[in-house]
């Protein structure tokens, strides 16, 4: 029963399988994150621009983009000419190891 310190996740995994919805959700987030970062690597963009490129609802783009801002993958740029939307850009190359 003793679980080694620093490796206790395995211990719980044996007792409590991870629900499928949780892994599916992770996949979805990882996919959206990649798509957003790739689109921003090509140049800074606003939320409506990203929504169009990714063919996703703008509110969903907003939610994920703001999460990436919080996690340090993305940073805020200037405002557009109409003073309506901010541009966002990748930070530290989207934390790429490459």
């Amino acid at each position: 029963m003793e679980a080694e310190k620093g490796k206790t996740a395995k211990y719980l995994k044996a007792k409590r399988p991870v629900p499928k919805a949780v892994t599916e959700h992770l996949k979805y987030f990882t996919r959206t994150k990649k798509a957003l970062i790739n689109a921003l690597k090509e140049g800074e963009k606003t939320v409506p621009q990203l929504a169009e490129i990714l063919a996703l609802p703008a509110d969903e783009v907003m939610y994920h983009l703001m999460s990436l801002l919080k996690y340090g993958f993305v940073e805020t740029g200037e405002m557009d000419d109409m003073d309506e939307y901010f541009y966002y850009k990748v930070k530290d190359h989207g934390k790429d190891k490459s």
């Binding site: 409506p48 703008a58 509110d59 907003m62 983009l65 801002l69 405002m79 939307y85 901010f86």
Partner: peptide, 14 residues
């Protein structure tokens, strides 16, 4: 705050 400033959750417009 959750965003860089006050924005619409629908599309990020100020």
């Amino acid at each position: 705050r959750p965003y860089n400033t006050i924005l619409r959750p629908g599309d990020g417009k100020m």
